[in-house]
């Protein structure tokens, strides 16, 4: 490529970065604005909306509810996803491709369809909309991701490590817990953080599977329908910061050798 096209591409990249960051930066900025009205001009800045958010007990309970769901669904997804990764990367059997496709199926389902199908399914199973249904919904959505991350990590584990453990007297269960699991741990912690973020941020499943108690995105959505407010900016900014920090930590863990 010529210098010219290279320069253009570089500009496209930075324009893309701006496209990604400007809306979020504006959102954060508006959270500090000393007025109930979202928009320009900004006259002065304040921390008032953050105080309002912290003192809002309802919001705090929504936060806690979302967090409980995120933790529970992540733990379940890690157990099932790791199990699936072990099956797909360590065992040899016919129809592996089909099992892989079935396990990772939720990753390619359009969100609304996944949510509706789970809503109907939980109803037929007698699970009323509420925490259990949301946790299961998020687990279904997160298992493929854990499986893929787990498989990638397992593929880099030398076969001889497991063989050596078995040679020294470990059965498959002991060799999994003492050798393979420690090897997988950094990747699983990283995947777990992303699962928590996904669950915490998920709207469509939480909305259709949830009962009267909203998760945070559902709460923000219902607030938005009545109009914008600087409080939403403040909450969103807090979530943004937490997300970025956790995401960076997870990224580090998953890429570590």
């Amino acid at each position: 490529m010529t210098r010219h096209t290279r320069l253009i591409m570089q500009m496209v990249y930075w324009a893309f970065v701006l496209y990604l960051f400007i809306p979020l930066s504006l959102m954060v900025l508006m959270g500090f604005k000393d007025s109930k009205f979202i928009g320009f001009p900004i006259k002065s800045l304040t921390l008032h909306w953050y105080k309002v958010v912290i003192q809002d007990l309802e919001l705090m309970s929504v936060f806690a509810y979302s967090f409980t769901i995120a933790i529970s669904s992540t733990v379940l997804a890690i157990i099932i996803g790791t199990w699936a990764a072990m099956l797909l990367s360590q065992a040899k059997f016919k129809g592996k491709i089909i099992v892989f496709a079935l396990i990772t199926l939720p990753a390619v389902l359009p969100g609304i369809i996944s949510a509706i199908a789970l809503r109907i399914y939980s109803q037929t199973l007698g699970i009323e909309p509420g925490m259990t249904a949301v946790i299961l919904g998020h687990t279904v959505h997160n298992v493929p991701f854990v499986t893929l991350v787990g498989m990638a990590r397992l593929n880099s584990q030398p076969m001889s490590h497991v063989e050596a453990a078995q040679d020294l007297g470990a059965d498959n269960v002991i060799s999994f817990f003492r050798i393979t699991l420690p090897y997988l741990t950094p990747a699983l912690v990283g995947a777990g953080i992303f699962c928590m973020l996904t669950s915490f941020d998920d709207f469509v499943r939480s909305f259709f599977l949830g009962g009267y108690e909203p998760t945070l995105p559902v709460y923000i959505f219902s607030q938005l329908r009545t109009g914008m407010s600087p409080e939403i900016n403040a909450i969103s900014s807090v979530v943004l910061v937490i997300t970025a920090v956790m995401g960076l930590a997870a990224e580090r863990l998953m890429r570590r050798k």
Binding site: M27, I220, S236, V239
Partner: peptide
């Protein structure tokens, strides 16, 4: 990494 709702809201702004 930020959720769908928050990013949609940012576009609104």
């Amino acid at each position: 990494w930020v959720g769908e709702i928050i990013r949609t809201y940012a576009i609104m702004i």
